[in-house]
């Protein structure tokens, strides 16, 4: 078995699991939000009321963390496939990781208005 220090779960099977579990969360959130936009008259009241609900803030944060994990596994796969130079690949992966971290923290700030 080949292990890589830069993949999320140290093993392909674990990464596969992370990818699937996060995929279900992301798909449910996407379908829910699209459904909301299609069935509700979206204005400031309905929009802020939705994001004011605690359960929806938790759902949104869960989605954002899933996005981070999902994107890490996906971008790790893509970068290891196409960027053969180790230093450059590491830099690109580090940049992707930094962006994901910013997304999660920014998302917490938006959702909970810290």
């Amino acid at each position: 078995m080949v292990n890589s220090v830069t993949n999320l779960g140290r093993s392909g099977v674990y990464d596969w699991m992370v990818q699937r579990v996060s995929a279900y969360v992301l798909a449910l959130y996407t379908l829910f939000l699209l459904g909301f936009m299609l069935t509700t008259d979206v204005n400031y009241e309905s929009w802020s009321a939705l994001f004011g609900q605690t359960w929806f803030r938790i759902f949104s944060l869960m989605t954002l963390i899933s996005l981070g994990a999902h994107a890490w596994v996906g971008l790790w796969t893509v970068t290891t496939d196409y960027i053969k130079a180790t230093a450059l690949r590491f830099l690109v992966q580090a940049a992707c990781g930094a962006v994901m971290f910013v997304y999660v923290v920014w998302g917490i700030k938006i959702l909970w208005g810290l």
Binding site: Y44, S48, L75, V78, V99, Y103, I110
Partner: peptide
């Protein structure tokens, strides 16, 4: 997947503005 990864920045930006108040929305 890569397009979505970049696009999330725009979406979060829009979400931030839209929830900042009626004016932002």
């Amino acid at each position: 997947g890569i397009i979505i990864f970049v696009g999330v920045a725009f979406l979060l930006c829009g979400l931030d503005m839209s929830l900042s108040g009626e004016e932002g929305f």
